[in-house]
């Protein structure tokens, strides 16, 4: 019997959106000198200085503030964006759910169209896709943990769906 997935809604944490209209190279440089890491590219995410930085769109990132204060982080990011972009508080725009256990990959194939079972979808990878008509975003943290982001209006239904799937899960399939 393999490790059945467990999932739990995460407590609300500040979520910020950094969007650039130009100056990608300059902004990346400012980010690197501020945080000592490179702004993640398409489909990637990194953790740096208590921030989970997730590539969201071309020129846009979603930043979850794990430790630190929302206002101060927002100001710091605005400095990094400089004249090349803007930062917006989107804390209420997504609910985060943490899925743990070895079989989160199997759970995410239910009602979906994304190859969550592909081993190349590994820690540090992020993907936006659709599950049962709901847009969700996955952030693979470790081999046994993935964070899933969904609009709060859909959260109750998504968790109810995963609960019913997990009950009947074919863990060997």
């Amino acid at each position: 019997m393999t490790d059945a997935p467990r999932f739990k809604a995460a407590p609300a944490e500040p979520l910020l959106r950094l969007e650039l209209w130009g100056g990608l190279a300059e902004t990346s440089a400012r980010f690197t000198s501020a945080f000592g890491a490179v702004l993640p590219g398409p489909g990637q995410a990194i953790t740096v200085s208590g921030l989970r930085v997730i590539w969201r769109e071309p020129g846009a990132w979603m930043i979850r503030v794990e430790t630190g204060e929302r206002g101060a982080t927002l100001d710091r990011l605005m400095e990094i964006a400089g004249a090349d972009g803007a930062v917006t508080d989107i804390s209420g725009a997504a609910t985060r759910c943490v899925l743990t256990g070895g079989d989160w990959r199997v759970l995410l194939t239910h009602g979906g169209v994304f190859d969550a079972e592909d081993p190349a979808f590994a820690p540090g990878c992020v993907a936006g896709t659709v599950i049962e008509h709901m847009a969700v975003r996955f952030d693979v943290i470790t081999e046994t943990r993935v964070d899933a982001y969904v609009a709060p209006s859909y959260a109750v239904d998504l968790f109810a769906y995963w609960t019913s799937v997990a009950r009947g899960l074919d863990v060997t399939g």
């Binding site: 969007e19 650039l20 209209w21 917006t88 508080d89 989107i90 804390s91 209420g92 725009a93 997504a94």
Partner: peptide, 14 residues
């Protein structure tokens, strides 16, 4: 060419 950013805050702001 516009220097502008757009954030969808439909669900952020109640």
């Amino acid at each position: 060419q516009l220097k502008v950013a757009i954030a969808n805050v439909q669900e952020h702001w109640a």
